[in-house]
Design a protein around this nucleic acid. Structure first.
Lengths: 109, 109
DNA sequence: TAACCGATATCGCAAATCCGATACCGACGG
DNA sequence: CCGTCGGTATCGGATTTGCGATATCGGTTA
């Protein structure tokens, strides 16, 4: 039962939005991308509800069998990235990179 | 209401571990750090159970009223960082939007 | 001593997150 | 025509996550 202390749970939606923003992708494409990054593919029962939710929120759109970000989707992603950056402004240390980066102040909407 | 699509949920434990690794901190210290990063402080009912769980897993230890990482804690953090990095290997793009994706300013959503 | 205050800690509850199983559909081969 | 296969999608349930309210404890002040 390995109670993983930091399973990175709750980032799936963010990750999906991020992946789609990089290139139009079908559900299966997204699944493959996630598997490549995280090591294992999410269940259909996990991925598709996320996609559906995103679509219902008007954040993504289905075009020619591929999901693409809408205007609102880009905005949402921008805000999410701001929060992400605010929380991990010292991400350089987290990733063992060299220091020196400074984070801008993030405002909350 | 406002079903935040990417609330960064599930990162609290990781964040707590990360904060403690940077400097010994009391529960209140951790709460203040999180508030500074995320904008709002977690409830006591959220933070202390996390601290307790971490302690029970032998990841952190209470020393002179301050929590500090144990050996296992450092190891766990190292693994978590590895996963974090693997998932967001293109974090530079996430944080800076390199490639000219400097979409307009944030709007009041 | 009593009242107060911040920090610490626990309890039950609501919501989110994720997964396994299952079903549907179009394309393909036997 | 029928079985198979990959992609899409839904349902129900189990686990995790976070919060509000509450209780305790040590130190300070009146």
């Amino acid at each position: 039962m390995e109670k993983r202390c930091c399973g990175m749970r709750g980032l799936l939606t963010f990750l999906v939005l991020w992946i789609i923003s990089r290139a139009p992708a079908s559900g299966a494409d997204v699944a493959r991308e996630i598997e490549a990054r995280r090591g294992k593919s999410p269940s259909p029962g996990t991925l598709y509800p996320v996609l559906k939710s995103l679509k219902e929120q008007g954040l993504v759109e289905l075009k020619a069998g591929k999901y693409v970000l809408t205007h609102d989707g880009h905005e949402e992603l921008t805000e999410a990235r701001a929060l992400f950056t605010a929380i991990f402004y010292d991400r350089d240390e987290i990733c063992k990179g060299k220091g020196g980066a400074k984070a801008g102040r993030a405002k909350s909407a």
